[in-house]
Design a protein around this nucleic acid. Structure first.
Length: 236
DNA sequence: AACCTTCCCAACCGCCGTATC
DNA sequence: AGATACGGCGGTTGGGAAGGT
């Protein structure tokens, strides 16, 4: 015989939590700490199952949670991490202090997905959406740019995306530093990238994500001493 | 003001790997 | 060794809020 069931699920309350229930749970956890969730509802005087208590605590009641919308910085982090990790929300959330996997998942599904689609970027692959064919008209969400500004933004993002493929694949350390791994650029690509209008954006993007750390210098060729390495430029 | 539609998010569901009996 | 609970995770849903007609 295995363990005891966590709850018999008979007579247990479901649905939204009341303020009174929240108070009971918070008081209990703050007094006793997080212990065996199975025991929590009984000890705290709640008619909920342990799993429901755990979810309520981790997603809503924890005192270290941030409330409100994700900042632009956090959103960029989520997009970048999603490009590397996919729908591993818990993993993504672990890099955003005070945010829960549920919160990030919701924000992705309700905001970021739409935003990327609107910009012509596939939220699954993070690549530009394929051009529409006669058989397959563009999805409603993937609207084509209507103005010059929108067209320029799309072009920018597409080019940036191809560069980011080369720059990133960062290792994310527990310190939340994103390290750029010895990424090689073809020598032919560097002048084009650096002379383009988006170079500043690339650096900004990297800075925003704390991609650039002390042991990772990005320089212009020759003048700032990028290490030339086998016909490619290397980030030190 | 009343109704309808869309949006948003808290909470649930079901699955999986691990722990326990 | 096998059965079963636990804890964690990602996907989905239901209902309230907001916006539109």
């Amino acid at each position: 015989m295995g363990r005891q069931p966590c709850c018999d699920k008979v007579g247990l309350k479901k649905g939204p939590w009341s303020a009174d229930e929240d108070q009971k749970l918070v008081n209990f956890i703050l007094t006793n700490g997080q212990c065996c969730w199975r025991a929590v509802p009984k000890l705290a005087g709640l008619l909920r199952c342990g799993k429901s208590c755990r979810l309520r605590w981790t997603n809503y009641l924890r005192p270290d949670l941030k409330r409100g919308l994700l900042s632009e910085y956090e959103e960029k982090m989520v997009i970048d991490l999603h490009a590397q990790l996919g729908n591993r929300w818990a993993k993504i959330a672990s890099h955003l202090p005070g945010r829960t996997d549920n919160e990030i998942k919701n924000h992705w599904n309700t905001h970021i997905k739409k935003k990327l689609n609107k910009m012509g970027i596939d939220p699954l692959t993070h690549k530009p959406l394929p051009p529409p064919t006669a058989d397959q008209p563009p999805p409603e969400a993937a609207a084509q740019p209507k103005t010059t500004e929108e067209a320029e933004e799309l072009e920018d993002l597409t080019f940036k995306d191809s560069i980011e493929d080369k720059i990133t694949s960062p290792l994310i350390e527990s310190t939340e530093l994103l390290l750029v791994n010895n990424n090689d650029f073809s020598i032919d690509e560097i002048p084009e990238i650096m002379s383009s209008d988006i170079w500043d954006d690339v650096v900004d993007f990297s800075n925003t994500l704390d991609l650039l750390v002390d042991d990772c210098d990005i320089h212009e060729p020759s003048s700032r001493g990028v290490a030339k390495h086998d016909d490619s430029w290397k980030f030190n």
